[in-house]
Design a protein around this nucleic acid. Structure first.
Lengths: 139, 139
DNA sequence: TTTTACTTGCGAATGATTCTCAACTGGGAA
DNA sequence: TTCCCAGTTGAGAATCATTCGCAAGTAAAA
């Protein structure tokens, strides 16, 4: 939140609620789910505001946008950005979403940046396949 | 193409054209662009068929689906799958899309699979930021 | 407190993608 | 080769996520 103030972004009632919901959510939320939860705290929030706030937070680098392999439709999911990036494993069998962080991922990013001169602002690694359980069953 | 025959997929006139366009395209195509090019070879192709064929090829693992950081809208882009995965770097400055393949990426995938027991079928690594040129200008 | 540029809510608009269904056609069987 | 039919297509409507336009509301600087 302080990050936003520093950037001169106005902190409105709606933004406060939305940010808190995103930061406290145990799951990856899409815009509609985020709205539903936010409405419990502030019934007057509108879906357009949700989208506008997500765009704002994304541009400020405070949240990441995910596809999660589009396991259920073409929508996007959001999560608060953490210090080190992690990748998402989406199981085509049971729909489970797992997270995986590794120093090797960080190393790969550094190498890509070094090799190409590209200044990385967002990194998104998503894998689709079968989780341990489903791989066993399908095998 | 042989891959499809083996799987018992019917090879229609439209599919033949679409596959050839995808395989020969020097750029990443979205559904509409793919349709436009395909129509030059077979004017009767329909957008619905393009989407159906893309879904088919994606499920068979013959093409990869990309977002390219949604630099220009929420559409998807497609490319023929190659033997080794590569990641895509999308420049927020000039819109350039660069590709980058590295043994380290393959190694990371193997490590993730080994650590988690996940059987990877699709891997998508997309980076957004500034290319060498734009990073210099903005700095 | 006043001011004003930035935000919001609402509903309409957009754009990508999917669906429905009748007509069509690969490619195996006869 | 011809026949047959399950799988495929075209056309347009439908769906779904996301964005826009604009009048009314509101942070927060002065």
């Amino acid at each position: 939140m302080d990050e936003l103030v520093e950037r001169g972004v106005r902190i409105t009632r709606q933004r406060r609620v939305l940010i808190s919901v995103i930061q406290n959510s145990p799951t990856h939320l899409d815009a509609t789910a985020l709205l539903a939860i936010a409405k419990q705290q502030d019934s007057g929030i509108n879906l357009a505001t949700v989208y506008r706030t997500l765009a704002l937070l994304k541009n400020c680098g405070l949240i990441d946008e995910l596809d999660l392999m589009h396991l259920e439709g073409e929508k996007h999911y959001y999560e608060a950005k953490t210090s080190s990036d992690h990748c998402h494993l989406a199981c085509f069998g049971c729909g489970a979403i797992m997270e995986y962080a590794s120093p090797l991922f960080e190393k790969l990013k550094r190498k890509i940046a070094a090799d190409s001169g590209f200044r990385i602002r967002v990194a998104r690694l998503e894998l689709g396949g079968l989780c341990k359980q489903c791989a066993k069953t399908t095998a």
